[in-house]
Computed example of a mutant assay.
Amino acid sequence: MSDPGPETELEIVHLLRALTVELGAHSARFAQRNGMHPTDVRALITLMDAARAGEALTAGHLGTALGLNSAGTTALVDRLERAGHVRRARDERDRRRVTVEVDERAVALGWSHFGPLIARAVELLSGYDARERAAIKGFLTGMREAAGADGGEPHHNGPR
């Protein structure tokens, strides 16, 4: 099997960039249709991902994850709470600690918009074998880590 070369690799990178733009637009449509700011959607996703991982987030941890200052985080949580999307809850183990939880109604609202897209992704992934899915997961995990580190250091001299 021959090496596909940098053109094929760049084609995949460009497809990933195009997918990122489309996913951002999809998320923005959800936000607009539901009277939300795009940061509200990012906050809900962050909170749901944390819950799925078995982690409870305080407002401070949420703000850090979103790159918000304390005042911005308070305004965000207040806005989401007023809209019925989240609630503040006392931590079961440390009653002094207040966490932010996503309300079930917000989850249902999200599924009504994102569910068909998620179903399509699952359908597409089912066409790959376990080894291919592991490669896809590895690539996406590596890209997420790279993006989280502001893309890391460039490995070339100039734009491509």
Rank of each mutant, 00 (worst) to 15 (best):
G63N: 05
V41G: 02
S126M: 09
R160V: 08
R88F: 02
D40Q: 11
A56N: 10
A83D: 00
E9L: 15
R120F: 04
E132S: 15
A89M: 08
R105H: 04
G60V: 01
A130L: 06
A53C: 07
V21G: 08
G67L: 07
R105F: 01
R29M: 04
V100M: 02
D103H: 15
T46R: 10
M36D: 01
A83T: 00
E132Q: 15
D103G: 09
R17E: 05
P4A: 11
G84M: 03
T39V: 15
E81S: 15
N69L: 05
T20P: 00
I45C: 10
A28C: 02
A28D: 06
H156T: 11
G115E: 01
L44E: 03
T46C: 04
L124D: 03
N69C: 05
P159Y: 06
G110P: 02
G151W: 08
D129Q: 08
R52E: 05
R79L: 00
N34I: 03
P154Q: 11
M36C: 02
F114I: 10
A43C: 03
G54D: 02
D49Y: 05
S112N: 14
E153S: 13
L57C: 10
P38W: 06
D3E: 09
F30H: 12
L124R: 15
L57E: 04
T74G: 05
R133N: 12
T74A: 12
A51W: 00
A149K: 14
L19P: 04
L76W: 00
G67M: 00
R97W: 00
F139I: 12
R42G: 11
G35E: 00
L68Y: 04
L140I: 11
G151A: 14
D103W: 06
R82V: 03
G84C: 03
